[in-house]
């Protein structure tokens, strides 16, 4: 097998899982996440001969993925592909059981759907991928100031659309 082909195969096998996880948070949908990663990997494949030496393949793929997501979101006009109805919060038990945890995930997923693509991207990069503000800015092609403002807006929006989530996070934070 051609060396470059083999190298690309290896890259796909080792990184698809991580890319899909991020893509799922960005899109909220299994099929959209697959489409997003597939599109980013296809573009990476086209550019592989110049990427494999630089070692920047993953950065390129992720950058492409985030830009595509923002672009697709704009084109679709209807931003919410995720369920938009927030479930009623469960009260009482301070220790989340399995059902409560499931409800919480559903709430978070629905709340993320209320954000713009760029706000969602900033949250995923900052709090899921643990990127710094500078790294996030570089990936999204915006300034650090924009990352800061988008992050603040995204968190504020989460508090607004899912106050029970904010309450939970705030109370947990207070007990630590």
């Amino acid at each position: 097998m051609d060396f470059l082909v083999s190298e690309f195969d290896s890259f796909v096998r080792s990184r698809t899982s991580a890319l899909l996880r991020s893509a799922y948070l960005l899109t909220g949908d299994q099929h959209l996440a697959e489409d997003l990663v597939q599109s980013a990997l296809a573009r990476t494949h086209r550019a592989w001969s110049r990427l494999h030496d630089s070692g920047n393949a993953e950065a390129y793929t992720r950058k492409t993925m985030y830009h595509l997501q923002v672009s697709w979101w704009r084109r679709r006009r209807v931003p919410e592909s995720m369920p938009g109805v927030l479930p009623e919060p469960r009260g009482g038990d301070p220790v989340p059981d399995h059902a409560q945890q499931t409800a919480l995930r559903f709430t978070l997923r629905a709340a993320l759907a209320k954000l713009s693509a760029k706000q969602r991207a900033v949250l995923v990069l900052r709090f899921f991928e643990d990127r710094t503000e500078a790294q996030t800015a570089e990936l999204l092609g915006v300034t650090v100031g924009t990352v800061k403002s988008q992050t603040a807006r995204a968190l504020a929006r989460l508090r607004t659309v899912a106050p029970e989530l904010a309450e939970l996070y705030a109370s947990e934070g207070a007990t630590r």
Partner: peptide
């Protein structure tokens, strides 16, 4: 919670599609 939400995704082989 974001990490747990990301766990919902099903892993698939995207090599051929890509």
């Amino acid at each position: 919670d974001l990490a747990e939400l990301a766990d919902e995704v099903t892993m698939v082989d995207l090599r051929e599609r890509s």
